[in-house]
Amino acid sequence: MTSIFLRSIKFLIGAGFVFVLLLALISSITGLIKEPPKQTAEQALHKHPKELELESNGPLGKFDVGQLQRGFKVYKEVCATCHSLHMIAFRNLKDLGYSDAQVKKIAKEWAMKQPVFDEKAGTWGERDNIPSDRFPKVYYAGTGNPPDLSLITKARHDGAAYVHSLLTGYGEKPDPALAAKFPEAMKTPEGMHFNPYFANLNIAMPPPLVSDGQVQYDDGTRATVDQMSTDVSAFLVWTAEPTLQVRHQAGLAVVIFLLFATGLAYGAYLTVWRGMKH
């Protein structure tokens, strides 16, 4: 069925693609030789997050409810003015160990009120929050775009560690020799702040945790900057996935069951095939 004609068509198509690729290859290589890529400031000065040890780390991680409560306090007193937490409802705070009454109080006293539309007047008003409400969105008028924090630890690579390093990394100026190579990058624009853990090196957020004791913890833990940062990171791991602990527990049960069931299935397979030469 394949005449010389058809065979040569196939060969030519293959040769065609290979030829264009070789052209592209040659241009890439010559481009590389003529203009070797220079290391950018981001590549040189950007740091990967420091390791963060949390109770929720690892395949069998679970939540430290005390730490989550502390982290929530940090969020409430430091972050909530600018950052929304829209995926969380006030009723979810029961996971942190608060009672129904406490949750109701937190909701009622929450500074940002729930917007309500007045059908008669055609205007937006506000009311107190109730437990079934989600945390109302926060709108920030200044420079920069404070992201919603509900999913931040999942929306960044190595998220919890990233948040912690970012919050504590403002003071980490680069090695002077390295800084000398990138004088442009070291000129921080007006209103921005240098932070090596941020992708673009200059972040619009001023350091939010400036001094020890900024937040007064109810359980008496000493509120150092590092402690507050760790606690709020742990809290944000919870906001990103409140069902994490349930998932790990279910997973352990499922995998153990499956190992047992697969073992039985293997035994059944051997039984069925006994003596059958293959």
Binding site: G251, V255, L258, T262, A265, A268, Y269
Partner: peptide
Amino acid sequence: PYYTAKDGFGVGIFLILFSTLIFF
């Protein structure tokens, strides 16, 4: 029953890998 038995075992291995992904 030969390949139904062998496939049953294969499904077990598949599900273990699948569950490791989903849950962990």
